[in-house]
């Protein structure tokens, strides 16, 4: 009885300590988000009064900012474009980075290490250097002003990243598993596809998530390659069409950020377990 209570007390204390430790982090991370959420529902006059409390409605909340977003911009198209672009980018990344990661991690190719470093180094080349030459490439392929241009260029930063990621994953798969597959009569490709790949699913999923998030972080390429209103992805469309001359549509801007950011956060959180599991548990499965 007595020991039970102390255990419970101990447990409570531990929880309190953890929560206390987490509070600042949650505040830092969430405070701006909360404030964006409130702002998205505020009337414009509510924003421009110094006496007003920024965390609550001083005038009745409004949906006007969202109606601007959906009826006066191509926001619906932007969301679809963003999703489609990210999906294509993820697909291209998987088709290239997964085999490459495997080859670099497992097949002990002559020069593999240097090739790996070289691929990694391409991640170092800043977009600011590349966007002008790339605009030539984009135009030559007839992709200018279409979101396909972004499907073409985004893998330039997702491939290096995900190749490295996959390299790490493949190295955690025990060599015996492949050997066993060989004994069972699989070829090299068969061993890769039927044995190594299935246990690396969490890694593959992680790559997909990264391809998605990285695709949503670009601004410069989108700005340079895609100008028609209905072809832009969200991260380009919002800053380019909700800032007019010297007027910012704050409420709509923040509403847009949250409408795309929050679902991704949920997805992300869902896959996070798999990501961690991918590194730790995937091996012993």
């Amino acid at each position: 009885m007595a020991t039970q209570r102390t255990t419970r007390q101990k447990e409570t204390r531990r929880h309190l300590l953890i929560y206390a430790g987490l509070t600042p982090f949650v505040l830092i991370a969430v405070f701006p988000i909360y404030w964006m959420l409130i702002t998205a529902f505020k009337q414009e006059p509510d924003l421009y009064r110094m006496g007003n409390i920024p965390f609550w409605f001083n005038l009745p909340p409004t949906l006007k900012n969202f109606s601007i977003l959906f009826y006066q911009t191509h926001f619906g198209d932007w969301i679809i474009n963003t999703m489609t672009i990210s999906a294509w980018v993820a697909l291209i990344t998987l088709l290239t980075a997964v085999p490459a990661g495997y080859a670099l991690a497992r097949l002990r190719l002559p020069g593999a290490e240097n090739i790996g470093i070289a691929i990694f180094m391409t991640y170092l080349v800043p977009g600011i250097i590349l966007f002008l030459p790339l605009s030539r490439v984009v135009a030559t392929l007839g992709l200018q002003d279409s979101w396909w241009a972004l499907v073409l260029v985004y893998p330039t930063f997702t491939i290096p990243f995900c190749t490295w990621l996959m390299m790490g994953f493949f190295k955690t798969v025990p060599m015996e598993m492949e050997e066993a597959a060989r004994v069972d009569g699989c070829g090299q490709l068969g061993a890769f596809l039927r044995v190594v790949l299935p246990v690396s699913v969490p890694g593959v999923l992680t790559s997909v998530i990264f391809a998605f998030t990285l695709s949503m972080q670009d601004f410069l390429y989108g700005l340079a390659f895609v100008s028609p209103g209905d072809q832009k992805p969200v991260p380009v469309g919002v800053p380019t069409e909700l800032i007019r001359g010297d007027v910012y549509f704050w409420g709509s801007l923040m509403g847009a950020a949250l409408l795309v950011g929050l679902p991704v956060a949920v997805l992300y959180n869902f896959f996070l377990d798999r990501f961690i599991q991918g590194i730790t548990g995937g091996v012993v499965k």
Partner: peptide, 14 residues
Amino acid sequence: GLVVIPFTLPIAIS
């Protein structure tokens, strides 16, 4: 889930 939100918002907008 809450603490990863900043990372998931499009950079230009946040």
